[in-house]
């Protein structure tokens, strides 16, 4: 399969990317690793006229320990997250979840920013960032703005990003609790999560339980109120309306959310 014709432009810097996006407007799509966009283009489900390649913007590939948070460049690859010593030490949840995305080839190309900007509720890392109370740093024609992850995901493949904006950095506060776990259920190991649950302390993120990545707020509330893990986990599907598909009905996904949340909380507890 061949993608439809387009014009390829490569950006050497974030600044250049912004000016190219400004130049082409709605006709342009940013491409980083390309593992979300290119398959869609080959299936002719996406037909951008211009591709602005930001894959070489090296200045956006980094993992840094700052005073009160970890800063991750948007173009940092899953592979780099998976193998980062800093993350292994400070944010093992993100390192671990990154290592379970796709397959090694995908992780050699796919980036954290690409995944977040794509806004797919079935992606693992957005829910992890949500559970970690991350902040997304975005550059655009009117300068830089910071968007809390809780306000970033608007709907299926819809985010707070404006067409002429570029996600540049993900800021993750150092977690108060070192307990963490990531539970993911897939058809095959290579597949997207049917449901996954990310836990950091008492924060719980849900993958594929609705049109956006979600926080299991009812569970978090119950835990804060001192509920036992099984009782809290029983509320994991509260307020969710996951789409039924070939892999799972709504009821099954909600069941999985409860089971995986309980297991994740127990696993996290064992790490505390």
């Amino acid at each position: 399969m061949i993608p439809p014709k387009f014009v390829y432009r490569r950006a050497g810097s974030a600044e250049e990317a912004l000016s190219l996006v400004a130049e082409y407007g709605d006709d342009a799509k940013l491409i980083a690793g390309g593992h979300s966009l290119l398959p869609l283009m080959k299936l002719r489900l996406a037909q951008p006229e211009v591709l602005v390649d930001i894959g070489r913007v090296r200045e956006l590939s980094y993992i840094r320990g700052e005073a009160d948070h970890i800063a991750i460049g948007a173009l940092t690859r899953y592979h780099d997250l998976e193998h980062s010593e800093l993350l292994a030490e400070e944010l093992p949840l993100l390192a671990h979840a990154s290592g379970r995305v796709g397959d090694p080839q995908v992780r050699h190309r796919g980036t954290i920013g690409g995944s977040i900007a794509h806004g797919d509720a079935a992606s693992d890392v957005p829910a992890v960032v949500l559970a970690l109370d991350g902040t997304l740093v975005v550059s655009g024609p009117s300068g830089v703005r910071e968007i809390p992850s809780g306000e970033f995901f608007h709907g299926p493949f819809e985010t707070a990003l404006e067409p002429e904006e570029l996600l540049t950095e993900i800021r993750l506060p150092r977690p108060a609790s070192s307990s963490w776990a990531f539970q993911k259920l897939t058809s095959r190991a290579i597949d997207w999560a049917v449901v996954a649950v990310a836990v950091q302390g008492r924060s719980v993120g849900l993958v594929n339980m609705g049109s956006t990545p979600l926080r299991a707020t009812a569970v978090e509330r119950a835990l804060a109120d001192g509920a036992a893990i099984p009782d809290a986990a029983a509320q994991a599907a509260e307020g969710t309306s996951p789409f039924p598909d070939r892999n799972a009905s709504t009821a099954y996904r909600q069941h999985l959310a409860r089971v995986l949340t309980r297991r994740a909380l127990e696993e996290a507890g064992s790490r505390a």
Binding site: P39, L43, S187, R188, A189, I190, D191, R246
Partner: peptide
């Protein structure tokens, strides 16, 4: 509804 190898669950080494 299973016309690609993303949807058709062709078994892998991991299973």
């Amino acid at each position: 509804v299973t016309a690609t190898l993303m949807d058709y669950t062709f078994v892998t080494a991991a299973e």
